[in-house]
Design a protein around this nucleic acid. Sequence first.
DNA 1: GCGCTATCTTAGCGTTGTTAAAATAAGAAC
DNA 2: GTTCTTATTTTAACAACGCTAAGATAGCGC
Lengths: 207, 207
Amino acid sequence: MRESDPPESRPYHHGDLRRALVEAACRLLEREGAAALSLRAVAREAGVSPAAPYHHFKDKSELLDAVAHEGWDKLAIAFQAAREAHTSARDRVRELGVAYVGFANRHPDLYRVMYDCSRDKADMPADVLEDENSAYGRVKNVLISAGADPADEISLELATIACWCAAHGLAEMTSFKQFDPLKDALGGEEAFLRGVLDHVAVFTKGL
Amino acid sequence: MRESDPPESRPYHHGDLRRALVEAACRLLEREGAAALSLRAVAREAGVSPAAPYHHFKDKSELLDAVAHEGWDKLAIAFQAAREAHTSARDRVRELGVAYVGFANRHPDLYRVMYDCSRDKADMPADVLEDENSAYGRVKNVLISAGADPADEISLELATIACWCAAHGLAEMTSFKQFDPLKDALGGEEAFLRGVLDHVAVFTKGL
DNA sequence: GCGCTATCTTAGCGTTGTTAAAATAAGAAC
DNA sequence: GTTCTTATTTTAACAACGCTAAGATAGCGC
């Protein structure tokens, strides 16, 4: 009785419904946007009844948490790509920001879910902040490799947060139409991002 | 038949229901938070039927627009207070940021409504950006008074946007619990804000 | 084979945003 | 001052939502 799985219609027990639900949610998010992401719609997309998800997630927000986690993983991948291939310290920091904002622009609804979850919990996922290879840790490392003093932990932390805040703010605002003329004048979205991020000079204290 | 207006129970026609609804919404926002801000709850708070608002607002989002507008006005007032009493250029820019983030911290749910509205329309309210005395214009002026070249319009615009993005990002993230140790180390929330904002050095190009 | 338990479905509750139709009041026309 | 018109408000209803309780189904240990 499932439409997208014609041959041997799915068994009563799904196998890994939890996984299927998260994927259905991501699919919906891309296809219909964040406003359309209801629990019932996700269940529909996965081909199960509206009550089925409650055996795998305590409530809707727990499903969204799982989606958000998926998002942070994807962001980490996008970051990895940006790390290579830039020589100057300034470039590396900036390009990390470009990658970050670029990700948010490519997946605006997913990005929204990610931050809504964080805000509701007043916390970002622990692994985003603590891991050496996490997004946050990576910014910190680039700052160090750019000359920031690793011994001055407080200043390093503040600089990292400043970077992150600017990137997050920009991620939420780049799509504002008011900036269109400026983007045109600079020759495109990416040039605009670089322009803004170049004004977030986190080096003033370090070099 | 209205509880909070005992003597001559309100007339059938309200007088200025539009105004009353916006105020009821603001009251609800402070008292119960953004999650509780339903159209029906607002109508309830104003003492009218669930359908009454539709004669003054096309739909819920239009009511929220009005609430958001109220918010931008309040922010402008908070900005006004911050303008005075700081000598160094750097101080003035930073304190504008502190005022901004402070406002967001004092009215987190209102701030959320303000930005959600902007995002849905992919635009901030025109008067926030265009007015000379608007928040945006004020940042620009402070940057000029701090030495930025008013002739280099593009760079000035980029710097202003950088400031705004950092402030917005910080506004949405200051309440994250991960930053608590750092706040303690620095001696409080305000010191933390100043610390972060000092790393957003938008002057590198100008002075 | 039997029962146990996890999984899924059906049915239903209370809430929401929104609309349609009827009720009410205020103002204009005469 | 009565009547007509129009703006405002109410009642009633719809579909969709999150969530819960009850029962159906099926895999697994025995």
